[in-house]
C-alpha cells in the first residue's frame, strides 16, 4: 500500500518536473558549482522523455512480436528441430552484455537512433523468447490432454489454451526486456541517440551534478513505473488465466 502511494507520488513529481522543469531550479541549484545552470535546457526534457520511451516501446513491441512468434514456431511439431538450438541461443545469448551489443551495432548502423534501436530490439528478443519457451513447454500436460480430448484443433489449442496459460510468463519476459531496454537506451546517447542519457552524460562531462541527478531520477522513476505497471498487468493476467482454466 505504502509502495503504491510512493509510486503515485513519484509519478506526479515526474510529471510536474517534465512539464515545468524550471520551477525545480531552486531545489537543484545547491548541486551546481560556479553558477552552472541547474536545469538541463539544451533539449526539452519532455521531448527527450518521449523519444526515449518511444524507442523503448518500439523496440520492445517489435521484439515481443518476433520473439513470441519464434517461440510458438519452435514449439510446434514442424519447428521442433530448432528447439534445442533455440534454448541454447536464448540462454547463451543473454550473457552478451547489452552495452557491448549496443557498441557492436554502431559499425552496422552508424551513429544515431538506428544502432540503439537495433541493440534494444536484439537484446529485447532473448528474455521474451526464453520466457515464451518456458511458458509454452511447461504447461500442465493434463490440460493439453484435455484440450485434445475435447477435439480442439492445434490452432484452437494454441489460441485458447496454450497462449493464455503462458501469458503471465511471457509478460514477465516482456517486463524484463522493457526494463533492460530503458537502461540500455540511456547509454544509447553515447552513440548519439536522443534519450535521457544525454542529460546524465552532459552532467558527467561538465561535472554538473544537478544534470546527473535530474537525468538519473527521471529515468529511475520511469523504470520503476514501467516495472510496477507490468507487475500489475502480470498479476491481472495470472488472475484471468486462473479464473478461466
Amino acid at each position: 500500500m505504502t509502495g503504491r502511494l510512493a509510486l503515485g507520488l513519484a509519478a506526479i513529481l515526474l510529471l510536474a518536473f517534465l512539464l515545468s522543469p524550471e520551477s525545480f531550479a531552486p531545489l537543484l541549484r545547491p548541486l551546481t558549482r560556479n553558477g552552472a545552470p541547474p536545469v538541463y535546457t539544451q533539449t526539452s526534457l519532455l521531448s527527450l522523455t518521449f523519444s526515449h520511451l518511444g524507442m523503448v516501446a518500439g523496440a520492445v513491441l517489435a521484439a515481443s512480436v518476433l520473439a513470441v512468434g519464434f517461440g510458438v514456431l519452435v514449439t510446434r511439431p514442424f519447428g521442433r528441430d530448432f528447439l534445442p538450438l533455440a534454448r541454447t541461443v536464448a540462454s547463451v545469448g543473454q550473457t552478451f552484455p547489452p552495452v557491448a551489443v549496443l557498441a557492436l551495432a554502431v559499425p552496422v548502423m552508424g551513429f544515431g537512433t538506428g544502432p540503439t534501436l537495433l541493440a534494444l530490439f536484439l537484446y529485447g528478443l532473448l528474455p521474451i523468447f526464453e520466457n515464451t519457451l518456458a511458458g509454452l513447454t511447461n504447461l500442465p500436460p493434463q490440460v493439453i490432454e484435455a484440450a485434445r480430448g475435447m477435439g480442439m484443433t492445434p490452432a484452437q489449442r494454441l489460441w485458447r489454451v496454450e497462449l493464455p496459460l503462458a501469458l503471465p510468463v511471457i509478460l514477465s519476459g516482456v517486463r524484463l526486456s522493457a526494463v533492460i531496454a530503458l537502461s540500455t537506451a540511456t547509454i544509447g546517447s553515447t552513440v548519439a541517440a536522443r534519450t535521457l542519457g544525454e542529460v546524465i552524460i552532459a552532467g558527467l562531462l561538465s561535472s554538473n551534478t544537478a544534470f546527473v541527478v535530474q537525468g538519473g531520477i527521471v529515468v529511475g522513476i520511469l523504470a520503476l513505473l514501467i516495472h510496477a505497471g507490468f507487475r500489475w498487468i502480470e498479476g491481472r493476467a495470472a488472475g484471468w488465466t486462473r479464473a478461466r482454466s
Binding site: 540511456t186 552524460i201 529515468v219 520503476l224
Partner: peptide, 21 residues
Amino acid sequence: LGVLNVVQTIPSLALFGIMIP
C-alpha cells in the same frame, strides 16, 4: 526486498552517475 528491487530497476547509467557526486 522492496529496496533491493528498486535499486535493481534503476538504469545503470543513472546509478553510476549518481554514485559520483
